[in-house]
Design a protein around this nucleic acid. Structure first.
Lengths: 337, 337
DNA sequence: CTGAAAGCGCTTACAG
DNA sequence: CTGAAAGCGCTTACAG
């Protein structure tokens, strides 16, 4: 493979020499902090151009103490909720002149968390945002030093006292379960996604709605967030004739559950209603189109950046209201008979 | 919202004072570069613990010249191909002690590219990886200075002489089109995704296969990568009775095309065969399960990191072979009659 | 094994 | 407007 040679990058002194001025003068041209005579400005700009000079970020960060990196600690980067949240963080970060440095914590154990935290903290960070969607996230939050500005995006409350952009999973789970019950289902089954150590808020809200309605609370099935694990759950649920409604921990799992039910000859929603969570972009195109609880993850990511910048600047940040919204499509209906 | 106070982070001198040793001694304990007496090691470790000391990354980077950030320049972070590639970069990066700093170039114009490049280069970067999947990527590649280690993940060849992890879109497009023709279709229609300035390799390979077979080359429809735009295309294609096979620029578009065809009463694959590109995780669960050209984006991301580290260390990196693989499922069949 | 000294590349008072 | 000087927090020869 071809490749350009890597030269020693030019430094400020090189530019100063080329332009015939002092080092501080170049710095002033760059920052605009102090007036510089027009002709020197021209010479300096020319030299910067010629040499292809870019400031050494490390040196600048050292002296100014200015950091322009938001560290993001997360258990995943590709699933819908995670990826959308990161997208929001990146957008809001970039608008504020910050880049996003991602470190994935791939296992929910102390060692992985420690390794990831150490790696992240080895960067000149303005602050860190933790995606507290899973056990990794919870652990990371408590492993972070006090000297750092920290915010979290979180599915429900939480322990350590950091600003959190939370989507109210509990409330969402409750509302969508109530909706299913209101269609006439005797109870609602649940295919759960992993929680952050404790049961997910979605599961808690689901259980609460069932209890409030005096409905039987079936034992939840487990999934690992993936459509494939949802499919397995769907196959199992298809064999039980007491199942008329299923709430899934997220849309990807719901897609799999629907397919599993259909592959066993159960029609959705005529035989079984299925609802999801999150409003994945494909939810409206699924067959049948998926009823779900919509969440604006991107907004949540932006909010977390707002919190972080608020802490950094001392100006408190006003979080926008919850974006929870029940989206009724075709995958849910009244039970037969 | 509650929040912990941000204290001035402790520095090496604070640790040295607390432990009653000199600054270099603390540094030596940290790096292990030079033996330090056991009792001093203990004192230093204790002080580090007590103070919650973390090294100042900027200072360390300045003196060692070591950078542990891979800058990633990309047009998107959430779509399947992009997100998976970034996942691979992060994995391989983390394994090598590097974090991934993402900057999105949200518009394919010079100004957006310049802003993103400047923001990325303001960090202490070990090198940068450009996702050359779109126009933004191509522009970014030419805007990067020579003094930086650069690699790209790319859909097909390319201009500037940087090491590229390429997935052979052209070859993939050709092979899957040949497959569709081999089923007996007179020609294959195409719903294209945006290319990186020029037509996508997928489109080129598709066209080449048609020409080689002496088939008519229909005018391709455009999409913007999303399932929704695929849906629009599907609706339009459904009205034409000369359409018996459609190759889509990616799986998400294919999902939409299938739904659009179905909503207009066309059955897939009995009336129209539809094939995708990429092997999205939901492709196997779609109804009908999607025939597609599988690509290992995660692997590509890892390869790009390999190139980068190869350049940094001077040890050339041997790229793995192409991962292109035709996956035949249920969405394609011989035409009727 | 350990400390005093120099220096990485920048910015910011300090004097003109 | 401009340069000489100091210093950010670390690491690395240099002497013991």
């Amino acid at each position: 493979v071809n490749s350009r040679p890597i030269k020693r990058p030019p430094v400020l002194a090189d530019v100063a020499r080329a332009a015939g001025v002092s080092v501080p003068t170049v710095s002033r041209v760059l920052s605009g902090s102090t007036p510089v005579s027009a002709d020197k400005v021209r010479l300096v700009l020319q030299a910067i151009q010629d040499l292809g000079y870019h400031p050494n970020a490390a040196a600048r960060a050292l002296v100014t103490g200015q950091r322009s990196i938001i560290g993001v600690l997360t258990g995943d980067t590709t699933r819908y909720g995670y990826a959308s949240t990161i997208q929001g963080i990146e957008e809001a970060g970039r608008a504020a002149g910050l880049v996003v440095a991602i470190t994935v914590i791939d296992q929910p154990d102390e060692a992985s968390v420690r390794a990831a935290v150490d790696l992240a903290l080895a960067q000149p960070l303005a602050g860190v945002i933790v995606l507290e969607f899973d056990i990794q996230g919870s652990l990371a939050l408590s492993a972070l030093p006090d000297s750092l500005a920290v915010a979290a995006v979180s599915s429900g409350g939480g322990g350590s006292p950091v600003p959190r952009a939370v989507f109210d999973d509990h409330e969402g789970g409750r509302r969508i379960t109530e909706y299913l019950l209101s269609l006439g289902h005797k109870t609602v089954h649940h295919v759960a996604v992993p929680g952050s150590g404790r049961p997910s808020g979605r599961l808690l809200g689901w259980r609460k709605a069932l209890k409030a309605a005096g409905a039987k609370v079936p034992r939840p099935l487990a999934s690992d967030w993936t459509a494939r694990s949802g499919y397995e759950a769907g196959l199992r649920l298809a064999d039980r004739d007491d199942v008329t409604a299923v709430l899934c921990g997220n849309d990807e799992v719901a897609f799999g559950v629907i397919k599993g039910l259909q592959d066993r000859g159960r029609r959705v929603p005529q035989d079984v209603s299925v609802a999801g969570f999150d409003d994945h972009p494909l939810a409206e195109l699924w067959t049948p189109a998926l009823t779900t609880m919509s969440q604006d993850f991107t907004e949540l990511g932006r909010t977390a950046v707002g919190f972080l910048i608020g802490r950094l600047t001392g100006r408190p940040y006003q979080a926008p209201n919850s974006t929870l919204r029940l989206v009724i499509r075709e995958s849910t209906a009244a039970p037969r008979g």
